[in-house]
């Protein structure tokens, strides 16, 4: 039901813009400002032991848009991303303070189970990490543990639609029982995206999803991200300015654990307000 609603929104958005165009063209300020806010971070501090990695980050993440997190290495992009689905919980000495809301619920609230949260906020990692199982099993695993399919036919359908959405179906439909680790790097990454989609999340977090891929596979995944935006909220960490410009509608620039600036991607790349942002995107440091 939610998906249908999202699609409707996405369609109306495409309609206002006329034909589908490259993301940079579609992302005019009026458009993303119109998108409802999906996730909100308020005064987020993160500590690894006694070392503070994030300092009071305030950020809004908009629905049906791609938000890019950029910044020099070690500035806390991954740390912030992992706060959004509480993957930091599994790191022993990591402590998160402040508030992060998904819709109206504080995901760090007492009654929130991170296991259920991660079904709503999925994640794709830097290095493709398919399970050493069949392609089919890779996709079916999530829906199975969340009890999303009762019969084999339902599961088959989930597997097919997930692979289709990840633009991988045609390449693997004849070899679903072969191991997922036997695919090429780019295919593996799309398999991981399909695996994340299969549990029907609302938000997909991607931590440098293309850094292990060649340019062609990268283009393929970027294209996919742009398509997925219609139905999902996407947050992507990237080191490539060009990639941020190509796929995202909004961009957040981090520096030394602070969120320096967050705005329309166009705005950040053409007319940044902060000197540090300017220096970074023009390649003066980082």
């Amino acid at each position: 039901m939610k998906t249908a609603q999202n699609t409707a929104q996405a369609e109306s958005q495409t309609a206002t813009n006329g034909a589908t165009m490259t993301p940079a063209e579609t992302a005019s300020p009026q458009v993303t400002e119109m998108h409802p806010i999906k996730m909100t971070a308020r005064k987020v501090d993160v500590f690894y032991g006694t070392k503070q990695a994030l300092f009071g980050v305030d950020l809004e993440i908009r629905d049906n848009a791609v938000t890019a997190l950029i910044g020099p290495s070690g500035c806390g992009k991954s740390t912030f991303l992992r706060c959004l689905n509480r993957m930091n919980d599994v790191i022993d000495n990591c402590r998160v303070e402040g508030e992060i809301r998904l819709g109206d619920t504080n995901i760090y609230g007492a009654n929130i189970d991170p296991v259920l949260l991660r079904a709503r906020v999925g994640m794709v990692f830097q290095k493709p990490n398919p399970f050493p199982k069949s392609i089919y099993e890779n996709i079916a695993y999530g829906p199975r543990i969340h009890g999303m399919a009762e019969r084999r036919a339902e599961m088959d359908e989930i597997v097919e639609t997930s692979l289709r959405k990840a633009a991988l179906w045609d390449e693997v439909k004849d070899r679903l029982q072969e191991p997922g680790t036997g695919l090429s790097g780019g295919q593996q990454q799309r398999l991981c995206i399909a695996r994340a989609i299969a549990v029907n999340p609302e938000v997909i977090l991607m931590d440098e999803p293309c850094s292990a891929l060649d340019p062609i596979a990268t283009a393929r995944v970027e294209e996919l991200i742009d398509e997925l935006r219609e139905n999902y909220t996407i947050v992507i960490v990237t080191h490539s300015m060009q990639q941020a410009a190509r796929v995202s509608q909004r961009t957040a620039f981090f520096h030394l654990g602070n969120l320096v600036e967050e705005d329309e991607t166009d705005q950040i790349f053409t007319n940044p307000r902060d000197k540090r942002t300017q220096d970074y995107i023009t390649g003066r440091f980082g």
Partner: peptide
Amino acid sequence: PPSIREAALGIGAS
């Protein structure tokens, strides 16, 4: 490899 654990945790495995 930790990537396998992360993969499973990331789709909501307990």
